[in-house]
Design a protein around this nucleic acid. Structure first.
Lengths: 155, 155
DNA sequence: TAAGACGTTGACTTTAACGGAAACTGCGCC
DNA sequence: GGCGCAGTTTCCGTTAAAGTCAACGTCTTA
């Protein structure tokens, strides 16, 4: 079973529109956990590795986060995953509860960060929108005046 | 009149949490129009200069825009200002209308960029929020179970 | 008039990669 | 099994962007 498809660096790079060099770089700076290798040393990326890479790329493109910031986020997500497993396997309810609480805390922190960022962007957008609205008003007014002139001359 | 308060580079830097060196750098790469100077050569920044700097800093921090991208935005805003003056002075309505249209186009483009960015961030936040919600549910469930055990043993 | 900003210039640093050399691996084909 | 070649490995150097640091001289102002 589980013909779990592993990809080599070149294929992964193409899929994510990065270069193999960049993937090695991400690994080097600890952004990406070292993937498994073939006997000969070639890197083999699992579906999970690729998922993780995808969120890295998304964070980078969407938020303009630095790789250092992304690393923090990714690490938080990683510890979240650990907590989930821990909670799942825990036999006693108290341990389970504590894991969940901890996980919840991490999640809420992430939400807060994103929420803050989003609100700031929204505010900036609203400012532009308001200016836009005012210009549109002026424009309509001018166009009405022009229309009036045309009607007048054609009569 | 107009005790228009001019600030020196150090004060401006402090206000914006940049270094004087960075301000000179922004000027050097054409991001910031050269401010006026004292007789001795010290830079004097006007309120308008500082406003402009504030949007630069905001764009950088919020969106992770590169200085080159920011320069484009700033230039667009600058030309918008020119257009507004032009439109104000233009005697014929058609010129006025055309200026306004052009300005509007620039503004709408900016709004679109910001809007897109904002929605994407919001989406990511919602994903986290959803996970958060689910964990909270699980947690309540566990807590209820724990409660049940306590009641049971104490009876 | 002395201390402390500020001026310019050039070299240095950090971040996020890119490029190339030299050796090694995987794999299809004879 | 051996050959060839594309893909990969590590190592090391380079680059562009965005600054920072240092030196040394000038200006402001208490």
């Amino acid at each position: 079973m589980s013909a779990e498809r592993y990809l080599q660096i070149g294929e992964v790079a193409e899929q994510l529109a990065l270069t193999p060099r960049t993937l090695r770089y991400y690994e080097e700076i600890g952004l990406l956990a070292p993937p498994s290798r073939m006997e000969g040393g070639f890197r083999l990326y699992s579906a999970a590795d690729i998922d993780r890479l995808e969120s890295i790329v998304q964070l980078k493109r969407l938020l303009g986060f630095s790789l250092r910031e992304i690393k923090q986020v990714v690490e938080a997500m990683e510890s979240l995953k650990l907590l989930r497993q821990e909670s799942k396997q825990a036999s006693d309810l108290e341990t389970k509860r504590d894991s969940l609480r901890k996980g919840l805390e991490i999640l809420e922190q992430q939400v807060e960060v994103l929420d803050g960022r989003m609100r700031q962007v929204a505010e900036l957008r609203d400012q532009f929108n308001e200016r836009s609205r005012r210009v549109r008003e002026r424009l309509q007014q001018i166009e009405a005046e022009l229309q009036a002139v045309v009607v007048e001359t054609s009569s």
